[in-house]
């Protein structure tokens, strides 16, 4: 079953002579439960593609279907989409450094109507899954890179997102931690999550079901 479908997506930054065509008429499909690697050189449009998939940026042309429905581009719908459907992970983790692991993971739930008790249950469950329950009260500024990335993964999963988008998730990690994180992605994928990973690393890409290559904003 097709979960993500892009049709003729274009995205341009800037105007006139300074315009940069980050994505040109991109069309692709990603099946539910599929794991996909996106590869390409720096500036090829990989991160822009991930931003479009994650609803972080608007598109200039084309259509984006998610679970068979066209994505609405109103601020309210985009927020809801980012909060409920997508788990987004970036290389520098994007965590609030003056907050604890627990508070960071709880963050997406604060934008829902779930009560405190329900939120505690969900965060506890997801932290146990990523092996951070015993460190939940530690500030994220005081934990290792691997633990930060696992916190970011837990935050991405806490609202039961069906799609995990990861931009260079192991770029800042050592080899051992990288292996642990990739095992975690593998497990999530086997549990039915759709995983899209942007990477430069062919070894990581080879672990995915499919590789999408992108050059100068076009899928090749």
């Amino acid at each position: 079953m097709v979960q993500i479908k892009l049709e003729g997506i274009s995205k341009t930054y800037g105007k006139n002579q300074a315009a940069v065509h980050a994505l040109k008429n991109v069309t692709l499909q990603i099946e539910k439960g599929e794991s996909v690697a996106v590869m390409g050189r720096s500036g090829s449009g990989k991160s822009t593609l991930l931003n479009v998939l994650g609803g972080l940026t608007t598109i200039d042309h084309g259509r984006y279907y998610f679970d068979g429905e066209q994505l609405k581009t109103t601020e309210k719908e985009m927020c809801r989409f980012r909060n409920r459907k997508i788990g987004f992970i970036v290389q520098n983790y994007a965590l609030l450094n003056d907050k604890t692991i627990y508070e960071n993971v709880e963050l997406p739930l604060r934008f829902t109507k779930q009560g405190r008790k329900r939120r505690m249950e969900k965060v506890g469950s997801i932290l146990e899954e990523v092996g951070l329950l015993d460190k939940k009260d530690r500030l994220t500024s005081e934990i290792s890179g691997g633990e930060c990335q696992r916190t970011a993964i837990a935050r991405a999963l806490v609202n039961d997102a069906s799609v995990i988008l990861a931009d260079e998730p192991t770029g800042a990690l050592d080899e051992t931690t990288e292996k642990t994180i990739m095992q975690l992605f593998g497990r999530l994928n086997r549990e039915g999550k759709t995983v899209v990973i942007v990477t430069h690393d062919p070894d990581i890409a080879s672990l995915q079901d499919r590789i999408i290559r992108i050059r100068d904003g076009e899928v090749i």
Binding site: C79, A94, L96, F111
Partner: peptide
């Protein structure tokens, strides 16, 4: 800026 980006990433709206 970073905090605003993070909270918007997880569902906070601009308004």
């Amino acid at each position: 800026r970073r905090d605003y980006g993070i909270v918007r990433l997880v569902g906070c709206s601009k308004p």
